[in-house]
């Protein structure tokens, strides 16, 4: 696998070669510049990670607080019926 592909696999985005330097350490290699950024084109979140995040959000939203869990579920049921959603 070439170096740019390795950079992408490592999670870098916009990986590119940016020219020769003219400094060659042997007859079969040449000095080359590379640049990349973290964050652009980063690996997409896996399905499992996405589900996990959703579950975390759901648990947080329904956690006992000023309203207890049961009350929150009833409010949600009422709201979804009112909105014509399938609860």
């Amino acid at each position: 696998m070439d170096f740019l592909a390795l950079m992408k696999e490592a999670g870098f985005g916009g990986a590119e070669m940016a020219g020769d330097t003219g400094f060659n350490s042997s007859a079969v290699t040449k000095g080359t510049m590379f640049r990349a950024k973290k964050g652009i084109g980063e690996k997409a979140m896996s399905v499992e990670d996405g589900l996990k995040k959703y579950r975390e959000f759901f648990e947080m939203a329904y956690a006992d607080g000023a309203l207890d869990r049961k009350m929150k579920h009833l409010v949600a049921l009422g709201a979804s019926l009112g909105a014509g959603c399938e609860p």
Partner: peptide, 16 residues
């Protein structure tokens, strides 16, 4: 690296 952080590399690549 921080998100958006930069990687700057000078290196040797194979030509043969």
């Amino acid at each position: 690296l921080k998100p958006g952080g930069r990687l700057l590399i000078a290196d040797q690549i194979l030509t043969g």
